[in-house]
Structures are given as structure tokens and as C-alpha cells.
């Protein structure tokens, strides 16, 4: 009788909300659409319809997807007992916003333009407050330790003008925060998800850095601590051919993301496939918890499913808009 039932209401409500997720049939209809207009018409019949109506043109479908995600996050926030669960999911958007704002400022200093349209409202910190804090250089009230991270990034830029270094510091802050928040909650599944996410990010970075021809000493700062696989182990793979990575990592779950590595002729195609494999791997980590009626990890599972749904929609709509081959689009879809 030690099983906690605190999440009985939450998980049940999420089960009800799962009925609003798009069925595979909808994705099939989207894929069968001749052009973007007909795809948008199909999407209008789904819960995304109300947001599509608000957009002035079909090309603004990304705003409609973002609005639906924001609606889901806001709704979930109201009844999830532990805010850490949705903080973890929304933190990447905060970091994205900081990157957009900082790059805009750095760009402007060099005579370029700022891209405020790339900001998203999906972060934990309201966009207006973040813009105000960064533009006025008044970082004191920024949450999650951003009041230390942002000035550090500005300082790095002032000294080195190295945008990769700035991105690395922000990514490091993201994963440290996720590890910290997960560590404060008594849910092993959440910690497992965060660890797996860091492992997956390290594998993604490994493939990218290998393609860019980085050597181990240069690449080391781009890997993040906190995963199940030690950074040293991942770093050592940089000198190995990518076909053998899965074998070297066979002791870790994340090796599943590389199961098709041997089918690829080069790193370019591996990297494209890796994006899908990583998302499917993380979906698999969380899917285990759907069989538990009271597991708090179901919150992460639902939010992750919604994120994957949004990602699939973006892939399909951008692909259809650009006249991409449907079989290519089908291969890019996650978990459908």
C-alpha cells in the first residue's frame, strides 16, 4: 500500500486529453494532401482548427501549432501537482528565447538585424519579461539561474565573439537545470528521462562534431555531464568510425538510437535519421509509464507526445508546402 495515488486525478485527466491527440489517420490524410491548402483544411478539422482560424494566412501554420502547444502547457499547469514536471519540458524554450535575444543583440552590434519573430511563448518565463530583462541588462529577476548564465554569455561574446561558446554555455545551463529539477523530485522516471535526453544530445553532438571534423580536445566542451554514459566514453568515439558506435555503446540504452548506423553510407544521412531515432528512443523511455495509473511520469509522457505531434505536423506541413516527396516525409515522421 505504499504506492502513491496523488496523481490519480492528473493521470486520468491526461488520459482524457490523450483523446485529443491526432490519430494516425489524420497524418495519413495530411500526407495524401495535394498542397498546403488542402493539408491546412484537414488540420482545421482537428483541435488545431481553432488556432488556424486565428491566423491570417496559411503559411502561419507554425503559429497555430505553437498556440495549441501553449494551450496544452497552460492547461496542464493548472492541475499537475509538481511544477518541476512542466518546467523540465518548457526549459528548452526559455533557452531558445535567450539564444534568439542574445544573438539579436550581438548581430545588431555588428550592424545586422534582430529576429524577434523567432521568439516563442512556450517558455516558463514570459517573453515580454525576458526581452525587458535582457535588453535593459537587468538580469536580477530572471528565474532558474538565468541571472548568472545570461551575463556570462554576454561576457563571453564581448571577449571572444565566439557564438558557439555562447551556445555551449546555454546548453550546459539547460541540462544542468533539468538535472537539478529532476533531482529535486522523488520520481526515478523523470531522472531517467533527463539522463536519456542528455545521452541523446551527446550522441547528436558526437555525430555533428565528427562531420565537422572536430578533434577530441576541441570537441570536449560540447558534451554534457549528467547522462548515463560518461562524457569521456562519448568523446573517445570521435576517433572511431560511426558504424562501430552502437557496439561501443551497447551497454547503454542510448545505443538504440544508433541501431541503423550501419545502413548509412555517410554521416549526413545518419544525422537526419538520428533526429528521428532520438525522438523515438525518448518516446520509448516514457512509454513504459503509461501502464501505471498513478505514475507522475505520465505528465512527461503526455507533454512529450504533444511535442512529437507538433514536430510531425511541422515536418509534414513544411514538406507539403515545399512539394517534398511523400515517402521521404513518411520516413521523417516520429512514432506514427
Amino acid at each position: 500500500m505504499t504506492c502513491s495515488v496523488d496523481y490519480g486525478y492528473t493521470v486520468s485527466r491526461l488520459r482524457g486529453m490523450e483523446n485529443r491527440l491526432l490519430e494516425p489517420g489524420v497524418f495519413q490524410r495530411l500526407m495524401d494532401s495535394d498542397d498546403l491548402s488542402s493539408a491546412i483544411r484537414v488540420l482545421s478539422e482537428t483541435p488545431y482548427g481553432k488556432w488556424i482560424l486565428e491566423q491570417q494566412s496559411e503559411e502561419k501554420f507554425d503559429k497555430a501549432i505553437e498556440s495549441e502547444l501553449l494551450y496544452i502547457y497552460s492547461e496542464t499547469e493548472r492541475f499537475v501537482p509538481d511544477p518541476g514536471l512542466y518546467f523540465i519540458c518548457r526549459l528548452p524554450y526559455d533557452i531558445h528565447n535567450i539564444k534568439v535575444l542574445l544573438k539579436g543583440i550581438f548581430n545588431q552590434k555588428e550592424g545586422g538585424k534582430r529576429r524577434m519573430d523567432l521568439l516563442t511563448g512556450l517558455g516558463n518565463m514570459p517573453v515580454d519579461e525576458m526581452v525587458m530583462a535582457i535588453e535593459s541588462e537587468d538580469y536580477r529577476l530572471m528565474p532558474f539561474g538565468f541571472h548568472r548564465t545570461v551575463p556570462e554569455c554576454v561576457s563571453i561574446w564581448d571577449q571572444s565573439h565566439d557564438i558557439l561558446q555562447v551556445e555551449r554555455v546555454l546548453d550546459e545551463a539547460l541540462f544542468s537545470l533539468q538535472v537539478k529539477i529532476a533531482g529535486e523530485m522523488p520520481f526515478e522516471g523523470v531522472r531517467l528521462f533527463v539522463r536519456s535526453r542528455i545521452d541523446a544530445e551527446n550522441i547528436r553532438n558526437l555525430a555533428r562534431l565528427k562531420r565537422m571534423g572536430f578533434e577530441s580536445p576541441q570537441a570536449a566542451p560540447f558534451f554534457h555531464n549528467g547522462g548515463s554514459v560518461p562524457v569521456e566514453k562519448v568523446l573517445s568515439l570521435l576517433n572511431e568510425p560511426f558504424e562501430g558506435w552502437e557496439r561501443f555503446l551497447s551497454f547503454a540504452d542510448v545505443s538504440r538510437t544508433l541501431s541503423s548506423a550501419q545502413e548509412h553510407t555517410g554521416l549526413d544521412s545518419l544525422i537526419v535519421d538520428l533526429e528521428r531515432s532520438i525522438d523515438d528512443f525518448l518516446s520509448g523511455i516514457l512509454a513504459k509509464f503509461k501502464y501505471s495509473a498513478f505514475a507522475p511520469e505520465n505528465v512527461l509522457h503526455f507533454l512529450w507526445l504533444k511535442e512529437i505531434e507538433a514536430k510531425n505536423l511541422r515536418i509534414l506541413l513544411v514538406g507539403i508546402g515545399n512539394g517534398a516527396d511523400r515517402s521521404v516525409l513518411r520516413r521523417l515522421l516520429r512514432n506514427v
Binding site: V5, Y9, V11, S12, R13, G16, N19
Partner: peptide
């Protein structure tokens, strides 16, 4: 316990 779950479902349906 069952009532809590029921309330969660009925909020949606």
C-alpha cells in the same frame, strides 16, 4: 481514489 480518477476523466468528457 476512484472518485479522483473519475473527476479527471469527467473534466474532459
Amino acid at each position: 481514489i476512484a472518485g479522483e480518477s473519475g473527476a479527471g476523466i469527467m473534466t474532459e468528457d
